[in-house]
Simulated scan of single mutants.
Amino acid sequence: MQPSPSKTDQAGLKNSRVRQKNIQIILQAAEDEFVASGFKGASIRDIAHRAGLPKANVHYYFNSKVELYGAVLNHIMELWQSVFSGLNPDDDPATALRQFIRAKMKYVLAHSNASRIFSSEILHGGQHIKDHLQPFNDWIQEKSGVIRGWIEQGKMKPVDPIHLLFTIWATTQYYVDYGPQVASVLGKEELESEDVEAYTESICQMILGGCGINS
């Protein structure tokens, strides 16, 4: 029979849960503020206000705005890694690429703030994200190797794997980062689910067709 947790253990577990909850609240508030104001315009005070916490509580977990921004960027990269595990050597290219494109579109729509922060950071020189890019770089190299294997097996045209992955990244990213422009061109106030489906299917057809893959 397992012994019951001591009061000290119970208190420690409760404190850990409170800490994780507060950090998640702060990170979400920080994402909202960095999207609204950019890195330079954002402040710990405004982030604390969005989080509904005293400014001192934010400083308790994060010493500075730079540290908090780094935590947000790290969280974005962790989300990326958790979502995109596909594109494996034994996969059928048509199925795998189609699933990847749809997963990428679903990801940017579900995490639009994260997508915009990432894009803004890159556009401003990527000074703060350099220390967080290695997992992404490793992923690109790994999946490029998978695509080269498909090419060697004659399953698709000899396209450049890295440029292919960046093309998928860019086309799906654009739909969220510049959504208002897309909606305006379509004559709508905002994009609807059928627009997303049509756009996603168009990307799939263009990518697979360009790779010489029958979809």
Rank of each mutant, 00 (worst) to 15 (best):
L53D: 12
E192S: 07
A29Y: 03
G212Y: 03
A42D: 08
M206S: 08
H49N: 10
G210V: 00
S16M: 12
G38M: 09
V182W: 03
A198F: 03
I26P: 03
F84E: 06
D160G: 04
V176T: 14
K55H: 13
Q127N: 10
Q81L: 11
G70L: 14
A36D: 13
V146L: 01
G70N: 14
A94D: 00
L68Q: 06
S85G: 10
M156T: 05
S64K: 08
A103S: 15
E31L: 07
P161G: 01
A170S: 14
F136R: 10
E189W: 02
Q10C: 07
D160E: 11
F100M: 09
S144K: 03
I207C: 00
Y107E: 14
I151D: 01
I25C: 09
L68S: 05
V176D: 09
K40F: 06
L13S: 15
W150S: 01
K55N: 13
D195F: 02
A51N: 04
K143M: 01
G212V: 04
Q2K: 12
D90M: 14
N113D: 13
V72K: 11
G187N: 01
E201P: 02
E121A: 05
S144R: 02
P5I: 05
D177M: 04
I213W: 01
V176A: 08
F34P: 03
A71E: 11
G70W: 12
L68D: 06
V35S: 03
Y178E: 12
S184P: 01
S4K: 14
Y60F: 13
F118W: 15
M156P: 04
F100S: 07
K65I: 04
W169M: 11
F136N: 11
H75E: 12
V182Y: 05
V196W: 06
E189R: 13
K104F: 13
A30L: 07
N214D: 13
S115T: 15
I122M: 12
L191Q: 01
L73H: 12
D92G: 03
G187P: 02
T172C: 10
H124C: 09
T95Y: 00
K7A: 15
S202D: 06
S37P: 02
